[in-house]
């Protein structure tokens, strides 16, 4: 085993992440504006910005899904119980006692088990809830003629709203957890440069040196 600087976040994945940052921030600000939480922007412009950001984000997600499955990266996001308890225990107690983070980054496991599980749940529940209710909300006039549409509209809208609050809650915890362990800057850097320190098995190292030398630095 040797620690190497490995490209764990290729260009598309970084673009994907930072576009999500921009788009989700835009959607949150405009969305809560439309909901009446604040009045920072004129309503009409807010609706336009929200709609366009949402359509771009859905487009991005379609690309990302395609990318995940063609590159095999989807495997990174499959949650495993193994090690999850240790990470949870660390955040709850160990971190206060100066213990080490129990997770060691591996080439095919670039997220810690709790992280992978969280992303998995978000990708399969919260994000679909947001975009499905969002598209339904946006296309209300198409299904309005259906019976009881007036009953369903507030349900769709409120599901959209609560899902949005869940996303904001996720962002708060997500950003905070960057400060735990090696610290905020150390955690953000790989998402900018793409490179992170990973324990490689000799086989992995040999394979990468032979076939994907661009993944290795130094």
């Amino acid at each position: 085993m040797s620690k190497r600087q490995v490209k764990v976040y290729p260009r598309f994945e970084r673009l994907w992440h930072w576009m999500q940052v921009v788009l989700i921030t835009t959607l949150a600000i405009t969305g809560f504006g439309m909901n009446g939480v604040h009045g920072l922007l004129p309503f009409g412009a807010t609706v336009m910005l929200h709609t366009m950001a949402a359509l771009v984000l859905i487009g991005l997600w379609i690309f990302a899904t395609f990318w995940l499955f063609t590159t095999g990266t989807w495997k990174q996001f499959i949650p495993r119980i193994e090690g999850m308890f240790a990470v949870a225990r660390f955040y709850a107690f160990g971190v206060f006692k100066g213990e080490e983070h129990p997770y060691e980054k591996k080439f095919w496991r670039k997220h810690n088990p709790l992280q992978a599980a969280t992303y998995f749940v978000i990708k399969w529940t919260v994000f679909p809830a947001v975009w499905i209710t969002g598209l339904l909300y946006l296309s209300y006039n198409f299904w309005e003629p259906m019976p009881n549409s007036g009953f369903w509209l507030p349900i769709v809208a409120n599901l959209h709203l609560i899902a949005a609050y869940v996303v904001v809650t996720f962002v708060i915890v997500h950003v905070y957890l960057l400060t735990v362990g090696h610290g905020f800057r150390h955690h953000v850097k790989p998402m900018l440069s793409g490179f992170d320190e990973v324990d490689l098995t000799p086989e992995q190292e040999a394979y990468l040196e032979q076939n994907e030398p661009w993944r290795l630095k130094g």
Partner: peptide, 21 residues
């Protein structure tokens, strides 16, 4: 927010940056 602020405060009080590799 209360959770992360509380978590952060306890980390500050215990004067440790948190685990390291």
């Amino acid at each position: 927010l209360a959770g992360v602020i509380g978590h952060g405060l306890i980390r500050l009080v215990t004067r440790r940056k948190g685990g390291s590799h």
